[in-house]
């Protein structure tokens, strides 16, 4: 992917660029928001990695600008040293597709970037999808863990598949609700928490098994595969 990095800290920008280059991406680093918008006029990027506070224009400002000025706004990943949950929610609500808190763990960054790339440029789903030890058969709505069938309800299956297909991506509650239950605003928010709890237990989505289900404050959930 062609990735634009907005980061005024040279060392951090270098680390991000190096990490993503290792993963086979082409990166261009900008230290100024205005410069980045000018570049976005000229050329196309597949993904934007944006620091929150940079000269010229803030990361959120850039997201807003792309929504207003580009026909196909690229997905955006916020890279920020703001660790407070409220800030994260503010970023996601403003239109960021995901976020990574500094300091940057290279493995996490790679996983998140790949997840965003998959979503923005999806490949056709096969009938049988394999995620590590998990095998999802979308024709029969069955899932196997290490060859052993796990009994899931239809909703649990759909939720698990949604999380696996969006591995390393923050999924908002609204997004999950709509994907599973349609536009039904009457469901209590506990419903989703209960389903998450169920599939975590049934599919053993625990770090010991290489997976972690992370609740995101006031936003939703993310499934992470731990680096082996």
């Amino acid at each position: 992917m062609r990735i634009a990095i907005l980061e005024d800290d040279v060392a951090l920008a270098g680390l991000v660029e190096m990490t993503l280059a290792e993963a086979g991406h082409t990166c261009e680093v900008f230290g100024d928001g205005q410069v980045l918008t000018r570049a976005l006029h000229r050329t196309t990027y597949d993904l934007l990695i944006l620091d929150w506070n940079v000269p010229g224009m803030t990361g959120l400002g850039i997201i807003e600008w792309t929504r207003g000025n580009l026909e196909v706004p690229p997905p955006a990943l916020m890279l920020t040293s703001r660790s407070a949950e409220e800030d994260i929610v503010a970023g996601l609500s403003a239109g960021a597709d995901d976020y990574v808190i500094k300091p940057v763990a290279p493995a996490v960054l790679k996983a998140r970037v790949n997840a965003l790339g998959r979503r923005a440029y999806p490949s056709a789903s096969p009938m049988v999808e394999q995620f590590g030890p998990y095998k999802f058969d979308t024709r029969a709505d069955t899932v196997e863990l290490d060859g052993q069938a796990v009994a899931l309800t239809a909703k649990e299956f759909a939720l698990a598949l949604l999380l696996f297909r969006n591995m390393h991506r923050a999924l908002s509650r609204a997004y999950i609700f709509e994907a599973l239950w349609g536009r039904n605003p009457d469901l209590p928010t506990r419903t989703l928490d209960a389903h998450i709890s169920n599939i975590r237990t049934k599919l053993n989505l625990r770090p010991g098994n290489g997976f972690k289900l992370v609740p995101i404050y006031a936003y939703g959930y993310r499934l992470e595969a731990l680096a082996a």
């Binding site: 800290d9 060392a11 951090l12 270098g14 680390l15 190096m18 040293s81 500094k102 300091p103 940057v104 290279p106």
Partner: peptide, 9 residues
């Protein structure tokens, strides 16, 4: 975070 990035690179 920058210090860690420098060490990393």
């Amino acid at each position: 975070a920058s210090i860690l990035a420098v060490l990393e690179t």
